[in-house]
Design a protein around this nucleic acid. Sequence first.
DNA 1: TCTGGGGTCCTGCCGCAC
DNA 2: TCTGGTGCGGCAGGACCC
Length: 342
Amino acid sequence: MRRILHIDMDAFFAAVEQKRHPELKGKPLVIGGSGDPTQRGVVSTGSYEARKFGVHSAMPLRTAYKLCPHAVFLPVDYQEYSRVSKIVKRILRKIGPIMEDVGIDEAFLDISQIKKPEEEIAREIKEEIKKQAGLTCSIGIAPNKLLAKIASDMQKPDGLTVIQNEDIEKHIWPLSVRKLWGVGPKTETALKDMGIDTIGRLASQSLDTLVETFGKSYGHYLYEASRGIDESPLITHWEPKSASREITFQTDVSNWQEIARTLAGLTKEVTNDLHRTRHKGKNVTVKIRFSDFETHTRAKTLKTTTNSKEEIRIAAFDCLGRFELKKKVRLVGVRVGGLEKE
DNA sequence: TCTGGGGTCCTGCCGCAC
DNA sequence: TCTGGTGCGGCAGGACCC
């Protein structure tokens, strides 16, 4: 049987800030956007003290400010979090070389081949992260990624949770369907309408019902996930498939020239990224979000892959020209997909 | 009233080729 | 010549993740 660890840093961005600004320890702290809660932006991470006031990730900064006006608001400092993240990942790779990176603050480790008790490995990881980065994490141990991820979330912060196949009925089935990776707000509502709120209720559905309701691929996934089945391997190496840049205006814009100027700037940044990472792309997509939050895209496929600034800019403007800009624009973005290594 | 930015993957539709 | 099935690429939108 496989043994998989899921390591999840506790309130990562907030914890990094509290580490380098010790005077913020124990205080409600909200990291997000430009750090100005009167500007547009959302919460990336709230400290546990801020969460007590109902502040959570993805919440508009303005809402967070209303809930917790005395919180300290700070901008996101990706450079610093990446630096700390690298320290953490180095520790993990040293302990278990089969590692899957999941964003800046999470990872899976496959420790099936390591001849040491799993909980001892987990404690060693916690100790090293505490020693080298001064931070705490929560760890889940299970026979697969799906269950390990659920487990790491069960006792936060600084938790260590082991889930065996025999525990599924007792410890996984009572949980909300939202705890399953891949079940978001839309699917949660759809399931609720079917009278399904827990993973156990989901597991009582027939494969036919789920496939009929959610399609072949997702239906199969839900059927297996609700039973704790997940054979997916760790992805230890991956190549990007697209590169993109987008920006939300502080106030909605109706001036076409400003939109065009912004698009030109974003296109330049994306092509710079392509040059830096030595990639070429095949298709260009422009995204426009209007003031009513309606979002549309226009795409163009090129004859050959390219990283030419000129070619990508022309394609992007071709896409922009196909929009009817009758409403004010809130966001503009550009993406280059179909990437290949140069 | 509010709802970021960087990604991935899936689905449905359309036109086209065979 | 007409019709239908099928497969595929391109496109648009949507759901989800951190």
